[in-house]
Design a protein around this nucleic acid. Sequence first.
DNA 1: CAGGAGAGCTAGCAATGCTAGAATCTCAAG
DNA 2: CTTGAGATTCTAGCATTGCTAGCTCTCCTG
Lengths: 193, 193
Amino acid sequence: MSIQTRRERERAERERLIVTAARELAEAEGWDAVTTRRLAAEIEYSQPVLYSHFKGKDAIMAAVAVQGFEDMAGELRTARTSASSPREALAAVGRAYADFCERRPALYDVMFTHAVDLPFATAEAPAPLRAAFGELRLAVAPLAVGEEPGVVTETLWAGLHGLLTLMRSGRLPREQHDRRLALLIDRFCPAEE
Amino acid sequence: MSIQTRRERERAERERLIVTAARELAEAEGWDAVTTRRLAAEIEYSQPVLYSHFKGKDAIMAAVAVQGFEDMAGELRTARTSASSPREALAAVGRAYADFCERRPALYDVMFTHAVDLPFATAEAPAPLRAAFGELRLAVAPLAVGEEPGVVTETLWAGLHGLLTLMRSGRLPREQHDRRLALLIDRFCPAEE
DNA sequence: CAGGAGAGCTAGCAATGCTAGAATCTCAAG
DNA sequence: CTTGAGATTCTAGCATTGCTAGCTCTCCTG
């Protein structure tokens, strides 16, 4: 049993190694550089080893995405809890979200753009996904007077996502980014007095 | 000179044939099915012919995208001009945009998601791109009191784009789509009396 | 020490975007 | 009608991709 557990531990460790290597390579050189050969070389094993851990490249990317949601949830939480009013909290979370996307574009892509087969909008979604969405919701809910918080959160999230992806792909100019971001957040706050 | 012009005309015709075939194939079976071999077979020429017209597959996709912007501009215009108030016009344009995305997902992807090297947010952007954005702007401007119309348009557009891409990739549930759409539009109308 | 199971690697497949160089066709000049 | 130059199109192939079959080697078990 002890040998068995040691093996499993080593296996789990190698799995983490794969996911970490994939993430780092993607963040350093983009997902195009993450080929199975390159990744295998990075972890100093042969290609087929990857397939003994993951069904394919997409599954590896999905694992990286889950890691990303953990990080994001943490950053959103920090932003939210260090604000002193609901209004500021929402603005802070919005900025944190945008910041995450800009700072770690490859990670953001695999979380939100690439097609990965993760259950997203269901109860079976991995915990980190629900945690990240939950943070956004906690920031939105206090300001969603008379509306269903879930729907409002989803809509604001979509707005953030749209602003960032369109800008990053060159479809929106970078210059007015801050104004757009502020405008979006503002539209989701109840009429100011 | 007449022979020369005939040749050029035939060449232009074949170029349209390529773009049309690429679009139809993509709309029927998705962009993954649009390989250079398959596309060459579809137009009944060999692969290298494609490269005598376009620099590569990306350039073909860019051409399809421009066609898509033409279509979209037309549909948005129809929606906008057949509404009877600014408020209804904006709602109609929003619905038309969403409808376009849902009806022609492959086309939408190449216009807004895929990386294609078209100049987007500059004065050199192809006319159809500016036309489509212009339609949105015409719908937004009357309601953008005290704000810069360009910024407001961009932000609303991003919201629409986010809602649609997140839903199509499974990251947002389909069920509340109409409510989210209505909520977004509503947030971009001045306070109702 | 034998034997068997499990783990890893080598080698290879099929598909992709793209290109070099051969082959074929066009059309004006003789 | 022939011929040759120039343009056009095709055949064949390259390098790279994700993925897998099947051999080999190691290491625990009896």
